Amino acid sequence: MDVLSDISSLRERLKRESSVSLVPTMGGLHDGHLSLVHLARMKADCVVTSIFVNRLQFSPTEDFDRYPRALADDCKLLEQWGTSVVFAPSEHTLYPVLQEFMVEPPPLANSLEGEFRPGFFRGVATVVLKLFNIVQPQIAVFGKKDYQQLHLVRELVRQFNYSLEIVAGETVRAPDNLALSSRNRYLTPETRAEAARLYQVLAQVKCQIEKGNTCFDDLERNATGILFEHGWKTDYISVRHAHTLAPAHEGDEDMVVLGAAQLRGTRLIDNVELHLES
């Protein structure tokens, strides 16, 4: 496995590869990331995993400075899981000058995550476009845990006419169904025991919809109330159409229940998909 930090060396290394898949990450790797690497290995001869904590997607009040950084440990894991190349650029490498050209995402980026993290998807779209240009993969793998991000990346690829397949990796969960996340490291033993409740309330909403309850507003309010009773501050619980992320309506067959909430300073996100037979 090669660990490279500059663009020219990466491009020279990839010249000899017939097919390349890219797994973009910010490091702090866990089994969820590694499942994406495994999926990428099934799709291309060469797997490039990028590790870069992207300042553009953090607001001044967020955790950019304390976000988990463990490059040596991450590289050990990636080598075990079959990554061919780790691309770990410095900030100066990806942003050698002030980044004044930015990718402006569609209005959807201002809802859900975008409502509570203004500018987040602008930063994500800009760095993802840079990585696509640098690596020039045929495949890129993104996790379903970041459901809205996955949707917007697919739209970016479609609207910019990239010849690139976006592959979605399923969310990997702990035994109690907590979605794996680098930010789970912020949880204390006490909050870790409570953290799985977010998935539980989303699963309860899914169950109610499958039983025929289409009062989505009520379901969202009830889920928010349950979290509030257990010490959570909810950003959103929202039932959306799975393919457009527009608010769900009665008669929709494919839906997703998305949630984001803070538990004593740690912000967690999750989602559950559902399909209703017509």
Rank of each mutant, 00 (worst) to 15 (best):
V239D: 04
L219R: 12
D63P: 08
S50R: 02
N133A: 05
K144C: 14
G212H: 06
L156P: 11
R264C: 02
A168G: 13
F58R: 08
H243C: 06
V141I: 03
V205A: 00
A125R: 00
P24C: 05
R264D: 00
G169H: 13
D31A: 12
G143P: 07
P68G: 12
G119M: 02
D63G: 06
R55S: 13
G265H: 07
L263G: 05
E229M: 14
P106I: 14
L202R: 06
Q159H: 14
S21K: 07
G259C: 09
A168Y: 06
V239R: 05
Y199D: 08
Y162G: 08
Y236F: 10
L22E: 10
T224L: 12
V37I: 02
A40W: 01
T224I: 11
S182V: 06
K76N: 07
L36V: 01
M26W: 08
F132I: 10
G251Q: 04
Q149H: 11
T61C: 13
R16Y: 08
G123A: 02
N54S: 07
G259M: 10
E155V: 10
C207E: 15
F160E: 15
E155W: 13
D73M: 09
V124C: 02
T61I: 15
V127S: 02
I209M: 05
D146I: 06
N161W: 14
